[in-house]
Design a protein around this nucleic acid. Structure first.
Length: 267
DNA sequence: GGCCAGGAACGTT
DNA sequence: AACGTTCATGGC
C-alpha cells in the first residue's frame, strides 16, 4: 500500500472530527467542508464511493508520509504500543473555521457530546447539502443569539463561540491569511480569540493548519505524559517541554496515537 | 445519581 | 509565574 495507507475507522473515531457517520456496510458518510463524501476502506486503501477523489485525498491527508512519521516515532513502550494499536490512523486536513469553532465547544466535554453539539449547530444554522448539513458559517453563528446557541447544548461556551464568530465574520481576524505565520505567531493569533486557550489552539494548529508538531495537552495526554516521565507530578508548562523534547518532529501524530490508545484502554 | 469530560478566564497567592 | 474557582451540560 502506497504511503502507509489509512485505517479509516480509527481515523474517524479518534476525536479529531465529530460529524462523520458509519453505515451498516462499514462505509462512512460526511462532508469535507462543502463536498459530500462517502468513503470506505479496503485493504488499507481509501475508496471513494461517492464524491470527488481529489477532495477526499486532500481531506484524509493521504500525502502525509506515514512511513517516515513512523520511522521518527519515539521508541518508549507507551509510544510503541500506541503505534501498534493505531497504525494507519491519519491526522485529517480540516476546514479552519469548522475546526476552530468545534474545538471552542469542546472544553470540558466528552467526545460523544461534542458530536451532539456539532449536529445541533449544523441542523439549526448550517446549509442543507445532500441530506446532510454544512457547518454553519461565521456569519450564521454570529447572527444567532447566545440563547439559541445555548439551546444547542453549549452552555457557557455559547458566548465564546458567538464572540469568536463575530471576529471572524467582521474580518478582525483572517483565518486564511494567518496560515502563513510561523507556528508560534499563529498560536498567539489563535489564543487571542475568545474561548481559545493553548490547548484548543494546538488542536487547531494540528488539525487545520498542518502543524504536525503541535501537541494539544488535554487531561488524557496529561496523564500519559506524567506516566511516561515516571509518574511524578508536573505543571502544564513542564509537560509541554517534555513532549517537545521526547515526541519527535511529528509530535502531533504521536500525541494523537497516545490519546486514542489511552481512551480505548480505559474502557 | 454522582462523577467527570480533548479548558478557558479570571482572581489570589 | 504558579494555583484555585467558576462556568453548563450530558454521557456513562
Amino acid at each position: 500500500m502506497r504511503n502507509g495507507g489509512i485505517a479509516l475507522d480509527l481515523t474517524l473515531q479518534s476525536g479529531q472530527v465529530f460529524h462523520w457517520d458509519r453505515r451498516e456496510d462499514g462505509s462512512w458518510e460526511g462532508l469535507a467542508d462543502a463536498s459530500p463524501l462517502r468513503v470506505r476502506e479496503q485493504d488499507r486503501a481509501l475508496q471513494v464511493v461517492e464524491g470527488d477523489e481529489e477532495v477526499a485525498r486532500n481531506y484524509f491527508a493521504l500525502d502525509h508520509p506515514l512511513e517516515k512519521i513512523y520511522a521518527d516515532f519515539p521508541t518508549d513502550p507507551m509510544s510503541a504500543r500506541a503505534l501498534e494499536v493505531c497504525r494507519g490512523m491519519r491526522i485529517l486536513r480540516q476546514p479552519r473555521w469548522e475546526c476552530l469553532a468545534t474545538f471552542i465547544t469542546s472544553s470540558m466535554k466528552q467526545v460523544a457530546h461534542i458530536r451532539s453539539m456539532s449536529l445541533a449547530l449544523r441542523k439549526g444554522y448550517g446549509r442543507p447539502l445532500a441530506g446532510r448539513f454544512c457547518y454553519p458559517t461565521p456569519a450564521a453563528i454570529a447572527s444567532a443569539g447566545e440563547g439559541a446557541l445555548r439551546a444547542c447544548g453549549l452552555g457557557y461556551r455559547a458566548a465564546n463561540l458567538l464572540a469568536t464568530a463575530r471576529r471572524v465574520d467582521s474580518g478582525a481576524i483572517d483565518l486564511d491569511a494567518i496560515a502563513r505565520l510561523p507556528t508560534a505567531d499563529l498560536r498567539s493569533e489563535l489564543t487571542s480569540l475568545p474561548g481559545v486557550g493553548v490547548k484548543v489552539a494546538n488542536c487547531v494548529l494540528l488539525f487545520a493548519y498542518e502543524r504536525l508538531d503541535a501537541v494539544p495537552i488535554d487531561v488524557w495526554i496529561h496523564r500519559v505524559l506524567l506516566s511516561m516521565r515516571g509518574g511524578r507530578s508536573g505543571t502544564a508548562t513542564q509537560l509541554a517541554r517534555y513532549a517537545r523534547r521526547r515526541l519527535g518532529p511529528y509530535a502531533g501524530y504521536v500525541q494523537q496515537y497516545l490519546f486514542h490508545q489511552a481512551r480505548v484502554s480505559a474502557k
